[in-house]
Design a protein around this nucleic acid. Structure first.
Lengths: 369, 369
DNA sequence: CGTTAGCACTAAGCACACAAGAGTGCTAAT
DNA sequence: ATTAGCACTCTTGTGTGCTTAGTGCTAACG
């Protein structure tokens, strides 16, 4: 089904139906269009056209002699070709800007916060994601010494991710051995693509450690783990409760299918990862696999600083969502996220910024020396 | 209303009503009790007793001439005094144990995973929390040097939390200054209660840095931030979709009130923090403030290793939940979490374990030296 | 020939009545 | 003190008819 096959009247009526349905969430009848759009046509003519649009698979009828609602394909044509792009009002921009003045500096927290804001702005459920970079290399490896048995592995990567991991060793390890290990690690792991690091290649380094190879072997495994975990993305969902304000999710089954995403984010991760960067991604109804019934749409966009992808943000809601408005907000958001983050760096703490991280050791017996 | 004021028959009937209602989720009538419990009484007698129990505020009638359902107070008496404690079957224990064999080592991930397991086991929504220690001190502070402008602050605490935070400085900082700063920090911050660290006390150290005070001043602010963030607890919610399987949450408003918790975890944090440690905490209906209508109950328990609290885990669901079974599982869980975590330390990676942590620097211009 | 008026038709929504069923409270008998 | 019996209450389900929104079709119209 192509947009070009539609004559002007069909386009006009399809657009009118979608616009109206987005607003009212009720099947749209011919009379309504006559009353509220100046089409200069009689209801009968509109009915005929609607019928043809139904034949084309762009409109649907919930039951005989009800009004029409758009099909997924109908929404698709609408989004691709018919919809007017919405211009944010200055009031809306002001509202966003006021809230974008985020007072935190961790990228993951910023992204989480952005998600919260996005769901508040759209009254939908928002999904935001920290970056998952396709090719990352290690810039530097360090090991911080706590005592003979406890260390902190620090890995700095080319995408400015700092990965830290606590290492606990039952056998004592002297700082000499550690220094040696550090050198070997930096010589062998720096500047190569993380995805090419294999367990054997890591264990190769064991032999380079000569006498210490057996002591160091388990540490290397931990390092391998840390490296493989660097690309783990984080997904935040917010505004789930918003769903219940929309009539389509008063049906418990539908609501459930979206709430399930909160527990199981893999699906979202898949969609995110197989989607285009820096482009608006729109999945309508059955076009995405996130909902069983195919009643929901998912729109998102990545945002970046320079050539670095910083994350992605989007919303999930009923097929009947106000695409143009949401797209406008999403575009504004992604365009400005980079600036916000940049500003943070400059303003925060008199030219200082910090990305922090807290984790727990599991009862390792760490003593002050 | 005290349990002791009830005679044997009242207790028996109250228990029977609660048990039945938990199972059936339908008002319980006198005839049902006669048929399924050998009370050796006629329906009429039971009706009289039920009436008295209603006067006492332990039972409620949805409408004239319906059966009875327990009130919050009724559940309370039931939970405190009437309920038989449930013994997990060997099959159930086996099921738990199989799933408790968690293959990860980060405490926060373990707790998240435990939450997932708990919700799967109970078919309710689970809530789990990482520890929030009342008194923590710093054991060691380190600063890892990346280049003249980028460092990683590492703080090791007495509760084995490793807090890391990236520091970016516009002005170059030599490793000499950094070494000096490290000494000052360790001399002044180690071994004192974190809650007593104030911003002025941190800025006092500025003067100790002599000539460098102005350069170091912003870094100290970041350090203060890091310290104040150490006690941040993390809350995980899982199994939200389970709610929709229960008739009480087919009412959208009720479901909404619980789903809201996912977006706004403060409420849960409050309840967690004002509750007893190492004791089972049970909040029935209006006894908690998490739901507007007071239709839900919240049960949780902290778990610890030695005298260290490792976290808390619990479930939220309808007042009509199978208290005895859930309590049994929660107890088993909290009793065994410490062991699991301990085992992890021993088994993982040939006597090594690691707690990791990944975060992002926001476009700081970090270069390999 | 495209457009429209007119009309028959369909299905949902709503109100209403009515019967069945579940379970009560009360009273009088045991 | 307990219970059988009965009237009463309220929910639930079903069936009926009316109304309403909106259709599809046909025949007339410019």
């Amino acid at each position: 089904m192509d947009y070009l096959e539609l004559n002007e009247r069909k386009k006009q009526i399809l657009k009118a139906v979608v616009d109206t349905y987005i607003e009212k969430c009720e099947p749209v009848g011919s009379k309504y269009l006559v009353d509220y759009y100046n089409l200069d046509l009689s209801p009968a003519t509109i009915r005929n056209t609607m019928n043809e649009l139904e034949q084309l698979g762009l409109l649907e009828q919930p039951y005989t002699s009800a009004g029409r609602i758009p099909s997924s394909l109908g929404y698709r044509i609408y989004v691709d070709s018919l919809m007017q792009s919405y211009r944010l009002t200055s009031k809306e921009i002001k509202e966003i800007n006021e809230n974008l003045n985020i007072k935190i500096s961790r990228l993951d927290k910023i992204i989480e916060q952005a998600g919260k804001l996005m769901s508040a702005l759209t009254s939908l459920m928002s999904v935001s994601m920290t970056p998952k970079s396709p090719s990352v290399s290690i810039v530097k490896i360090d090991i911080v010494y706590f005592d003979y048995n406890n260390f902190l592995l620090v890995i700095l990567t080319s995408v400015n991710i700092v990965k830290t991991k606590h290492i606990y060793s039952k056998t004592d390890i002297s700082s000499d051995i550690l220094e040696h290990l550090k050198k070997v690690l930096n010589n062998n792991l720096v500047n190569i693509d993380i995805n090419t690091v294999s367990l054997p290649s890591i264990l190769n380094m064991e032999t380079m450690m000569g006498n210490y190879s057996s002591i160091v072997s388990p540490i290397l495994k931990v390092i391998y783990e840390a490296i493989s975990e660097i690309n783990e993305a984080q997904i935040y969902i917010d505004g789930a409760a918003n769903l219940f304000n929309m009539p389509e999710y008063h049906d418990v089954e539908r609501a459930k299918s979206l709430i399930t995403l909160i527990d199981n984010k893999e699906k979202l991760l898949n969609i995110f990862s197989q989607s285009a960067e820096d482009k608006l991604n729109i999945y309508i109804g059955e076009e995405n696999s996130i909902t069983s019934g195919g009643d929901s749409s998912f729109i998102f966009k990545t945002f970046s600083l320079g050539d670095k992808i910083l994350g992605a943000i989007g919303v999930i809601g009923p097929k009947r969502m106000d695409y143009s408005k949401i797209i406008a907000k999403l575009e504004y958001f992604s365009a400005n996220m980079a600036d916000i983050i940049k500003n943070e760096i400059d303003e925060k703490s008199n030219s200082y910024t910090a990305i922090d991280d807290t984790k727990f050791m599991q009862g390792g017996k760490i003593n002050n020396e």
